[in-house]
């Protein structure tokens, strides 16, 4: 450094220190007090074994209880499997729509289509689920339509099964897939697709060799968000699936709020957190993406 030694302190540097301190403090308080420490506390509670009322010792009995009870493990496996399926279905349904908006529609039509996709998702999930309930329940529109058309003799209950839960979950997730897909496809230069055709490719091979690889960050980002939201969803499976949905978050709710068994409930929470982190990590690994590159854009 050739800076003259006669300047002992750089006031600008001190200012930067102060600025760093100022902007770092809220961040640290937020992440430590509201995110990290509560989760550490949750972990500690999950390691409490109840010996007598208000007397605990440390151990992994709550986790043993979880893995020893087939009903709980089944609920978790079922929830994960249904969430993966919902993610895949959402991707398959959303991709053509995103491609249409990004590459085929233009001008006003493009804006209008994009807004039409966006609008339903500004409305509360509760309202959307309520709409599906009104359509699908025994006294609902679909049942009445079938009776009116003479297809069935009496009312039919469409609620409380896995298919309906899947319809609701996919519906709730679509936007979180469509938006990252559009922004990924938007950045794909049309001339690359044209080049693919010039080189003798067809729609399928170009999709596989050009479009999908380019859209991969969007696909991964959308899939992660959809998977997490689905796995952590409570409202849609509970209202559309009823008791039969056995959604894992409903088990956590039961332990925490209904049975007031926080020790077991915390263990369940950690099992869910670990499972979802593991699956997201595997997904990132398989696709060669990273969390900050997919979410933090």
């Amino acid at each position: 450094m050739s800076a003259p030694a006669s300047i002992p302190v750089d006031p600008r540097r001190d200012g930067r220190r102060l600025a760093l301190l100022l902007v770092a403090t809220p961040f640290v308080l937020w992440i430590l007090l509201i995110v990290v420490i509560p989760h550490v506390d949750l972990l500690l509670i999950s390691l409490h074994e109840k010996v007598a009322p208000r007397v605990f010792k440390t151990g992994i009995r709550n986790y043993v209880e979880f893995f020893g009870e087939p009903v709980y493990v089944q609920a978790l496996v079922r929830t994960v499997a249904m969430s993966l399926l919902a993610t895949a279905l959402t991707l398959v349904i959303a991709f053509p729509v995103a491609y249409y908006i990004a590459k085929l529609a233009r001008g006003r039509a493009r804006t209008a289509l994009f807004m039409a996709c966006l609008l339903p998702f500004w409305v509360s999930e509760l309202v959307r689920v309520f709409g599906w309930m009104m359509i699908l329940r025994e006294t609902g529109l679909l049942s009445n339509l079938l009776i009116w058309a003479g297809i069935t003799a009496g009312p039919v209950e469409f609620l409380y099964n896995d298919v309906v839960v899947m319809i609701g979950l996919v519906y709730t997730s679509l936007l979180f897939m469509v938006v990252p897909l559009i922004s990924a496809l938007d950045s794909l230069d049309d001339s690359l697709i044209e080049a693919g055709y010039d080189l003798g490719g067809n729609a399928v091979s170009i999709l596989r060799e050009v479009v999908v690889p380019h859209a991969m960050p969007g696909i991964v980002a959308g899939s992660i968000v959809v998977f997490m939201l689905t796995l952590g969803n409570y409202l849609t499976p509970t209202l559309l699936g009823g008791k039969s949905s056995q959604w894992f978050t409903a088990q956590i709710y039961t332990q925490f709020i209904t049975r007031f068994n926080w020790e077991v409930g915390s263990a369940f929470g950690f099992v869910l957190l670990a499972t979802s982190s593991l699956i997201v990590w595997i997904g990132l690994r398989l696709t060669g993406q990273s969390l900050s590159s997919t979410l933090g854009r």
Partner: peptide, 18 residues
Amino acid sequence: LAPLVIPGVILGISILAF
């Protein structure tokens, strides 16, 4: 970024517990 990938129910119970 973590709070975005933690299920909302778990954010809820961790704050409740703490």
